[in-house]
Design a protein around this nucleic acid. Structure first.
Length: 287
DNA sequence: GGTTCTCTGCCGC
DNA sequence: GCGGCAGAGAACC
């Protein structure tokens, strides 16, 4: 571990233990650098800015307090929110539901899902009210459903209705021809760093690949190659967040959550379908 | 709605 | 490697 990493680690600890969100100047004084330099180094090492890191920590703390059964007011003040209005403005984003409901054990959000068939095998599509929250591929539909339940233990999983089947058909069509884009809202849940990585993945055009090193560079955290790989592996939205377009620096394929064969198939398909496709290709399940 | 803070690109040493 | 500025945008009051 070099000196930068050590200093940033101590800044992280400071952020975690502080009762409020530390200012940049405060962190800079601790590090013994200028605020500019502190900011840059922090971002370089962690992949996120100090503010984002502190924000994530604060959100985590609110969730902890609420789960412990504290009153909502106690929870957000202790977590470092300065006022109720600011907390409530951010609450839905942070918790996915009203704070009181979260504290009461979150009776669980409604998640619609359905399993369809694609050329890559079984495909499970699930959506919350916010948007598509899972797209997974596999051989065994039941296993896919079980994984979904494990991931959303408190949610009400409901089989989709006919309208939802339509949405599944859209996703299947998209998986068959990713270069056309998926015009659906996504419900993307992850840490600040993961979100950053996933956004970078979504900026990789179909038909091209990049290395993990390059993704790390693009998000401004060139040293975080391993963390980038971890974020890719944590992706739950197959094809919509195209982690299959990330390969080793030498171009060979690394792992893929949904099977290396599927990764290869996806890449091959994208290479062969030109970008300026006129959209005339039709796929099963589409009007 | 104004002020302060954050963030990033760019440059200089 | 480090500091600094400018300017846009977000957060805050």
């Amino acid at each position: 571990m070099n000196e930068h990493a050590a200093v940033v680690a101590s800044l992280c600890r400071h952020i975690e233990n502080a009762e409020h969100v530390p200012t940049l100047d405060e962190l800079a004084a601790l590090a013994g650098w200028s605020s500019y330099h502190t900011h840059r180094v922090f971002r370089q090492v962690t992949g996120v800015t100090p503010r984002a890191y502190a924000g994530a920590r604060r959100a985590e703390r609110v969730r902890e307090q609420l789960r412990r059964g504290d009153t909502v007011t106690d929870a957000f003040y202790q977590a470092g929110f300065g006022s109720s209005s600011r907390f409530y403005a951010a609450a839905t984003q942070l918790l996915g539901m009203r704070p009181t409901r979260y504290r009461d054990g979150g009776p669980g959000e409604d998640i619609l899902f359905a399993v369809g068939q694609s050329s890559l095998g079984a495909i499970l599509v699930a959506a919350s009210r916010q948007g598509v929250c899972a797209i997974s591929l596999g051989d065994d539909p039941q296993l896919l459903v079980r994984e979904l339940q494990d991931r959303f233990p408190r949610a009400h999983l409901q089989g989709g209705d006919s309208a939802f089947e339509q949405l599944v058909a859209t996703v299947v069509g998209f998986v068959e021809a990713p270069e056309r884009g998926l015009g659906l809202p996504l419900d993307i849940r992850g840490t600040a760093f993961q979100q950053r990585v996933w956004q970078a993945l979504r900026d990789i055009p179909a038909g091209t690949t990049v290395s993990y090193t390059e993704v790390a560079r693009r998000i401004g955290a060139p040293a975080s190659v391993r963390a980038v790989a971890g974020a890719c592996a944590a992706n739950r939205l197959a094809v919509a967040i195209p982690c299959h377009r990330v390969v080793r620096t030498d171009g060979t394929l690394s792992g893929y959550r949904w099977g290396i064969a599927r990764k290869r198939a996806l890449l091959e398909r994208e290479r062969n379908e030109p970008q300026h496709d006129d959209g005339s290709v039709r796929h099963a399940g589409e009007p």
